[in-house]
Amino acid sequence: MPLNALRAFEAVGRHLSFTAGAQALTVSQSAMSRHVSSLEDLLGKPLFERSASGLRLTQAGEILLPVVAKCLDRLEETLNTVRNRDSESRPLRLHIPPSLLNQTALPLLHGFRQQHPEIRIDVTTSNVTGTPQGKVDMAIVFDRPSVDDRVTDLLWMVRVAPLCSPATWAAHQGKSLEEFLNAADLLHVKLDNEPRGLLWSTFADQQRIVLDTSGGLAFDTAFSAVRYAMAANGVVLADIDMFADEIAAGNLVMPFATISADGYGYYLKTHAEDLSDPTIFRLRDWIIRQFAQTSGVDETARVAPGE
């Protein structure tokens, strides 16, 4: 495997410049050009389109670059681990979406720590749909079903229904679902690169009702939207399993048994090559088992009195 040529290709592809790539690796520009040319000869395909305006990756280059970059990063991490003889001390890096972390995952992590106090975990969170940016060992992601180069385990599919405070429902009691939602203040949960009212629009289509989704407040997380609905006003389209405790306690009301699946779910993503690591295997197994035991509310429950 032409390691030097791959390193040169990755540097040039990252910067889209032979000059910047050469500076990053502290080699001459001519050496970079020779390495990339040798890799192109080996593949029998060009990796860059060269023009007066600069460099552009070809289709072959776009396919190869992320794989080479990932492999070089993993190789560097492993070399550093072996060099430092510190393979057991580096914390596992686990990403969890903010709403799931606050509402469900914190007690699960506490349970894991009680059983495995010797395993260190660095938990990060970010409000993204899909796999987060940055280096993580494992990631719980909020997304639609997708296929990538990671091992993917479904933790649960989201089931949503309109939820509000008892006071909000009392002010609208007796109305139909369509009348209620058009009269109430809609609370939105924003998704990356999606229209503001996507989730409510999808729900309205599924229920075959006409709903104006242009108004209301929008939040970055379902956790914030639900807390606002409980403390103030408005109706939120939220996961009934994630907020099962609030529904059971009567702090949230589900006025209508109109539970639907919006196509999103929570998935655990792990690098396939990491499954041989006993620590990562142990944490993955724990997460899957704990989420399998998580129970939600009864689908037929009609929490709102008098509906």
Rank of each mutant, 00 (worst) to 15 (best):
Arg14Tyr: 00
Arg208Asn: 10
Val297Arg: 09
Val67Tyr: 11
Ala304Phe: 01
Asp274Cys: 01
Pro166Glu: 11
Gly174Leu: 14
Ser87Arg: 13
Leu101Pro: 01
Asn233His: 13
Ser201Thr: 15
Leu198Thr: 03
Arg50Tyr: 08
Asp241Lys: 02
Asp86Thr: 09
Gln114Asp: 15
Ala304Cys: 04
Ala167His: 12
Gln173Asp: 13
Ala218Asp: 01
Ile63Phe: 10
Glu10Met: 07
Phe256Lys: 13
Val226Phe: 02
Ala292Gly: 15
Val27Trp: 02
Arg50Asn: 07
Ser224Pro: 04
Ile121Tyr: 03
Val158Leu: 03
Arg159Pro: 08
Ser89Val: 10
Pro97Glu: 00
Gln173Met: 14
Leu57Gln: 15
Phe112Thr: 08
Glu10Gly: 03
Arg289Ala: 15
Asp262His: 04
Cys71Tyr: 09
Phe243Thr: 10
Gln290Asp: 13
Ala161Arg: 00
Asp220Trp: 07
Arg90Ile: 12
Ser53His: 01
Phe219Asn: 08
Asp149Lys: 08
His172Ala: 09
Ile288His: 11
Phe9Ile: 09
Phe112Trp: 12
Pro97Met: 07
Pro98His: 04
Val235Leu: 07
Pro255Val: 01
Ala222His: 07
Ala69Leu: 03
Leu3Ala: 08
Asp137Val: 03
Gly263Trp: 09
Thr168Gly: 06
Thr300Met: 15
Ile280Leu: 11
Thr152Gly: 02
Arg7His: 06
Val303Asp: 01
Leu154Arg: 14
Thr279Arg: 15
Arg74Gly: 15
Met1Arg: 14
Leu252Ser: 04
Asp220His: 07
Asp73Phe: 12
Leu268His: 03
His95Asp: 05
Gly265His: 03
Asp148Cys: 05
Trp156Val: 13
Glu49Val: 14
Ile259Val: 14
Gly111Glu: 13
Ser33Glu: 07
Thr124Phe: 02
Val235Asn: 05
Val27Gly: 00
Gly61Tyr: 06
Cys71Leu: 15
Lys70Phe: 11
Pro66Asn: 13
Val147Lys: 11
Arg196His: 03
Asn193Arg: 00
Leu186Thr: 02
Pro145Phe: 11
Ile63Ser: 13
Ala304Ser: 08
Glu246Lys: 11
Val151Glu: 13
Leu268Lys: 03
Thr26Asp: 13
Phe219Ile: 01
Phe180Tyr: 15
Ser224Met: 14
Glu299Ala: 15
Thr81Val: 12
Ala11Ser: 13
Ser38Ile: 05
Pro278Leu: 06
Trp200Ser: 07
Val236Phe: 02
Arg159Phe: 01
Ile209Ala: 10
Asp298Ser: 12
Val210Gln: 05
Met242Gln: 13
Ala218Leu: 05
Val12Leu: 08
Leu154Gln: 12
Val160Met: 06
Thr78His: 14
Ser126Glu: 10
Ile287His: 01
Asp137His: 04
Val253Met: 11
Val226Gly: 09
Thr104Ile: 06
Leu198Trp: 07
Gln173Pro: 09
Gln114Trp: 07
Arg56Val: 10
Met230Gln: 13
Met254Ser: 00
Val297Ile: 15
Phe291Trp: 10
Thr213Glu: 12
Glu179Asp: 14
Ala171Pro: 02
Leu187Arg: 04
